[in-house]
Amino acid sequence: MASSSLAKSITKFRPCFSLSGHSSTPLPSSSSSFSSAAVVSSTPDTNSSSLSQPQQKQRESRLSKWLLFLPGALTFGLGTWQIFRRQEKIAMLDYRRKRLLMEPVNINNLLSLEDKLDDLEFRRVICKGVFDEKKSIYVGPRSRSISGVTENGHYVITPLMPVPGLPDSVQSPVLVNRGWAPRTWKEKALEVNQQGSEQSSHTVPSLVQEGERSSWWKFWSKKTESLENEITPITPVEVIGVIRTSEKPSIFVPANDPDSRQWFYVDVPAIARSSGLPEDTFYVEDINENVNPSDPYPIPKDVNTLIRSSVMPQDHLNYTLTWYSLSAAVTFMAFKRLRQKTSRR
């Protein structure tokens, strides 16, 4: 009886022990619920990341495909641009050729068209006057091939001055590019000009000293003889040339230095200012073919050089074929690369 009553009392107090005791049975259920919730909550993130990665790969593959064809498109565009450049060059050379076939006119008839100087370029003109050698300007260095030997030199630009009393003479000064001369010719010309200026400066003092030493009539006779020797008849020069404008130098050509008289390219307004002439002075390139064999320098320009260019139409055609062939080769390589990628997959 005692044992049965003890068993009943234990069964009565068992719920109390289960509620108040530190039992671990309910904890696993709560932890399992939390872990399951975490798993459930993490499953959408993994699904979203798994969906975004293929999209990124597709975008990258598309971009890589376009980049493979980009060099072919660029080279194709360059080849097409060379075709347009060829057409422009053909039109430009035809324009020059037609202008040079026209009969030369007196430059005095074109003075009223100074505002349209660009329209007058490559027009053949006739100029008559006297060269002012002391104001010559040398543009260079410019090389020239003579019998297979390249020699350095300069272009000689000299003002052509009017001749009083000559009806066909130029009415205003004209800058004339007389042609090419070697460097040694330039040095000799500068020495002659310096000696001439020194002799002219010492002429009057020598005459005064002669007058002081001799009698009046003797001095007068010597003075008149010296004046007769100094006065030389003016012989006008006829220049057949072509109206031109200033050159457009490349980025590799140095800038002109008028103070030190160093000219690397033709700048007509600057050369005119340096020579004491108006900036709108006409600039003419001599193309006269009648050259004196005993004194050939400066050598006038050849007319055929005026209808030439550094890049001729045939060169543009060669460039076009080169760019198109390069475009075809690069595009073929791009297709081949894409086929390799698809076969690997």
Rank of each mutant, 00 (worst) to 15 (best):
D257Q: 10
E238P: 02
E247A: 05
E247D: 10
K248N: 13
P269R: 14
R244Q: 09
P258G: 03
P254D: 04
P258Y: 10
A272N: 06
T235R: 05
S260N: 12
D259G: 02
S260Y: 13
E247H: 08
P236W: 11
N256M: 07
I271A: 04
F264H: 15
I251M: 05
A270S: 13
I271G: 00
I271K: 02
A270Y: 12
V237T: 09
Q262R: 14
R273C: 09
F264G: 03
D259F: 12
I243H: 03
P258C: 07
S246W: 07
Q262A: 10
S260E: 12
R273F: 08
A255E: 12
N256C: 05
P249D: 08
I240M: 04
P269V: 15
E238R: 09
P269I: 15
S275N: 12
R261M: 14
Y265C: 01
V237C: 01
E247R: 04
D257V: 11
V266Y: 01
P254W: 06
V242H: 01
W263M: 11
G241N: 04
P249I: 07
V253L: 01
W263E: 06
P236C: 04
T235G: 00
F252D: 03
P258T: 07
G241V: 11
S250N: 07
S274H: 15
P254H: 05
V239H: 05
T245A: 06
R261H: 15
R244S: 06
A272V: 14
I271S: 02
P236G: 02
T245I: 12
I243P: 00
